[in-house]
Every structure is written in C-alpha cells, then in structure tokens.
C-alpha cells in the first residue's frame, strides 16, 4: 500500500468541504494534481493544497492507496465520503458527513466525528474511536434507506437517530446511544455496549433487523412486546465476528449470555427485535 500524508495547515473558520479526501480521488494522480483538488469554503472553491501539506506517494488504484491525515479536522466535512476502496486514516476529529455514502475500503478516525457520519453507507468499514454525533449511519432527509451495507464501529457515544432507516449492515456502539436509535429500521444489526436512551427501535419494521443492548436500556417503547428470555444461537455468530474480526473485545463476554427479547414496533406491524442482555 502506498501512503499519502495530509497534514492540515491553518484551516479556515468556515467549514471546509473536502470530499476530495478519499483514496479514490488521489489514486493515480501526481502530488501536484492532488494539491489542486477542489475543496469548498463557504461559496468559494479552493485547493486542497491551500489547507493541507501533501506528502508521500499515490498508488495506481484506490485499493492500494492509504491516505493518512495527521491533525484535527473537526471542521472539515465529507472526509472519506463516497470512498470505494483503500484506507483512510484520520488522526484526530472530523466534521460532518465523514464516510457518508462510502461503498468500500476502510475509514478510520481516532477522534470523534460530527453529525451524519457514515450516512447512507453502502459498504466498507468506518471506525470512529471517539464519539459520533447525531444521525450516525442514518438516511438523509426524505430517503427511505439509511445504511444498506458496511460496518460502523464507534468507540464512544453516539447522538440521536443513529441507524435511522437502516436496511443492511452493522452498527456497533461501544459507548452510549441517544434516543431514536434504529428508528424506522428495516433490516441491519445494531449492537450497543453502553447505555441506550429511550425510543430505540421506534417504528422499526423488522426484516431481520435487531438491536442488541448489552449495557442496559432507559426504557422500552410501549409498542414493543416482551416475548421471552433466551440464549439466541444466532447472536453468537455476530458476537464472535465482533470480537475476532472487529476487535470489539467486550463482545466476547456475552457469548453465553441470556437476552430478553422484545418484538415491535407493533404500531407499524413491525417484527424487529430488541435483545437486552441479562445482567
């Protein structure tokens, strides 16, 4: 893998929109071309090189490309948005829409991400070691489908409406999740190892979708019904994957746990599941 290093210089006060920062858009380009990639500040178009020192090498194809950003990008939007291959590592925080609509490859953020990270993600792996903002992996307004594939792993807490309108893929939250987790979900899997605020799974239809909660739940909607307490075999598969392939150590602790199973949202005739680990 060829590594390209981007180091933020003085970033503008206004948000910088930089969907140009993906392995896809730098692969096959010279450093000079990379520096000339457009970025947007307010109503102006600027060059990537105006705000980032660019060093290292570019690869022929995105899948051989590693892009590493060293420095805080908390006000930089769209980092890794739409990427299809390769790796992108940010050592620091990122602004809104990080990894939105990404289709493949790996985007790894050591800090926190703002709202809409991984929104409408289709594939690939998005790791956020810190916290994520609102609408993590959600559908953009009006869209009937949020995540349709891929995996998001968040080390910290997440805001409102994480996994809204989820269809496929996995969302793993190691910290706490705020309200409306998995609202309108219709497929896909959500795992939360911290606490979950109320209204999780609101208006979820089902289609195989579930939310597994390991750290407790503030409350369950009145439109979810308690079915049983059991040890679901199927969950073992996911938990092993989380532990062995995604490095979520905590998952290993629940391999033999019992879960309370709730089904809903019956307000919409849904068959989604909420599984809550018994302490």
């Amino acid at each position: 893998m060829k590594e390209l290093m981007l180091t933020p210089k003085k970033l503008p006060d206004l948000p910088l929109e930089a969907e140009a920062i993906t392995p896809d858009s730098v692969a096959g380009k010279t450093l000079k071309e990379v520096k000339s990639l457009p970025v947007y500040v307010g109503n102006t178009v600027q060059k990537l090189g105006d705000y980032f020192d660019v060093k290292g090498e570019t690869a022929e194809t995105p899948s051989d490309q590693l892009v590493a950003i060293q420095g805080e990008c908390g006000n930089v939007k769209y980092i890794g948005a739409g990427m299809t291959a390769g790796r992108l590592i940010v050592e620091g925080c990122v602004g809104m829409h990080a990894g939105a609509e990404m289709e493949g490859g790996e985007l790894s953020i050591t800090g926190s991400a703002s709202n809409w990270a991984g929104a409408e993600m289709k594939g690939g792996l998005l790791r956020i070691q810190g916290d994520a903002g609102h609408q993590l992996g959600a559908a953009y307004r009006g869209s009937p489908e949020g995540m349709t594939g891929g995996v998001i792993v968040v080390g910290g807490d997440v805001g409102l409406e994480a996994g809204a309108f989820m269809r496929r893929g996995m969302l793993i939250i190691q910290g706490d999740a705020d309200s409306f987790l998995g609202v309108h979900m219709n497929g896909g899997e959500i795992f939360v190892f911290g606490n979950v605020a109320r209204r999780l799974g609101a208006e979820a239809k089902g289609n195989g979708g579930f939310i597994a909660c390991f750290g407790g739940v503030e409350s369950i909607l009145p439109t979810y019904v308690y079915d049983t307490t059991f040890r679901p075999d199927f969950l073992k598969l996911y938990l092993r994957q989380l532990r062995d392939q995604l490095g979520v150590e905590a998952a290993g602790e629940y391999l033999d746990a019992s879960f309370r199973r709730y089904r809903g949202d019956i307000a919409v005739g849904g068959t989604a599941e909420i599984l809550i680990a018994e302490p």
Binding site: M121, G123, G149, G150, G208, Q241, Q245
Partner: peptide, 11 residues
C-alpha cells in the same frame, strides 16, 4: 421465520 444477514458490504 427471520432472515439473518451477515457481511453486507463488508466481510
């Protein structure tokens, strides 16, 4: 019955 899916878009 419930369809269980793994590895959509990753893995």
């Amino acid at each position: 019955q419930v369809k269980m899916r793994m590895g959509d878009g990753w893995g």
